[in-house]
């Protein structure tokens, strides 16, 4: 009898350890991202943007894919991070890496305050609140022109070398390497989070909130926590954009950016962390292809893609796209 007990404990331990082990496709994925530095030397600006948008989509994945919260206004935190980093640099503190931490902390704090509205009410209330909060920030940024530059944007940001060592260059090589490093570090953190008991408790409350409460999980606290973390991630993505492009405009807070993030996540698939990055790559490729066809009406195509994805069923399309694109699978969805 005791032998059987020992056996099941052993199997349980092995299974628990396996869930956070690195898989070969994951290593290949990051290998490709690094190889792109050397293989695509002329596309570093684009790659930089993909990494930033990927990080932003990953931040949405944390709340949508793991905790099941639909947000229409995650650009609010992206924007807060971008303005925080931009204003910090303009005030004379030009070291990027610490600026990033600063911006992330600000965005997380803002997210923490907003989360208390998000935990109230139904799905519908949440749509209203997330949309409303984002619009408040657009309005604030627009109104306080003297600080934010209003519609002209925040001009004259000049960043110092990263950690005092690496200067930004015009080709975007430093920018991409920097963003890729940040993306990877943030991914590692996110990976830890979702594989932890905390991450499991998020999945629990997404799948069955009543049962999650009945095993003692304080659901509201969990949502507050993950919403703040996710806002911090979004803020860091925004800060990266501000630092690597030396510019912040009202566009960082735009509704379209929040919608982009959702679309990207739908393309890449949610709930396994890579979805945001893969979606971001697909998104950039599609935009490239479609805007050479009809440059002005990208918005129309974005809408069409969204409708098609949902009507046809994202599983079917995503499965195809996944098979075609990099064969990267973390945990199967």
């Amino acid at each position: 009898m005791s032998e059987i007990v020992g056996n099941s404990r052993e199997r349980a331990r092995r299974s628990a350890a396996a869930s956070s082990r690195w898989r070969l496709p994951e290593l290949a994925f990051w290998g490709c991202a690094v190889a792109a530095i050397f293989l695509l030397p002329s596309r570093h600006l684009l790659l930089n943007e993909i990494a930033i948008v990927g990080l932003f989509a990953m931040s949405i994945d944390l709340i949508l894919g793991y905790a099941g919260i639909v947000s229409l206004g995650h650009a609010a935190f992206f924007g807060v991070g971008a303005y925080a980093a931009g204003l910090l640099a303009k005030s004379g503190y030009v070291e990027p890496a610490s600026g990033l931490l600063f911006a992330g902390a600000i965005a997380a704090t803002v997210g923490f305050s907003a989360s208390f509205l998000v935990i109230r009410g139904s799905d519908l209330t949440r749509l209203m609140v997330t949309l409303g909060v984002a619009l408040v920030f657009v309005e604030v940024a627009n109104r306080f022109e003297s600080v934010t530059g209003g519609v002209d944007g925040l001009l004259g940001i000049s960043m110092g070398p990263i950690l005092g060592l690496f200067e930004f260059d015009f080709g975007g090589t430093t920018a991409y390497c920097y963003s890729l490093c940040v993306l990877f570090v943030m991914f590692l953190i996110a990976r830890r989070i979702v594989n932890s008991p905390f991450g499991t408790s998020l999945r629990a409350l997404k799948e069955n909130r009543m049962r999650a409460g009945a095993i003692g999980i304080p659901t509201a606290k969990r949502i507050v926590a993950v919403y703040s973390i996710s806002a911090g991630f979004a803020g860091i993505a925004g800060a990266l954009l501000a630092q690597t492009t030396a510019f912040v405009s009202l566009e960082v807070l735009d509704f379209a950016r929040s919608a982009d993030g959702l679309l990207i996540l739908v393309i890449g698939g949610s709930g396994y962390l890579y979805g945001g990055i893969i979606g971001s790559i697909a998104f950039a490729l599609m935009r490239d292809a479609l805007s050479t066809l009809t440059p002005a009406y990208w918005l129309f195509w974005m809408g069409a893609i969204l409708v098609a994805l949902v009507v046809v069923g994202r599983e079917r399309i995503v499965d195809c796209a996944k098979a075609l694109s990099l064969r990267v699978r973390g945990q199967p969805k």
């Binding site: 008991p197 905390f198 003692g216």
Partner: peptide, 25 residues
């Protein structure tokens, strides 16, 4: 495991996965 972690006061842990919590598992 989640329910056990919750009782043991470990369910808010962000850093260690269940792989590193053998007593819970």
């Amino acid at each position: 495991s989640l329910a056990v972690a919750q009782r043991a006061g470990r369910s808010a842990g962000i850093w260690r996965g269940f792989g590193a919590l053998p007593e819970i598992v």
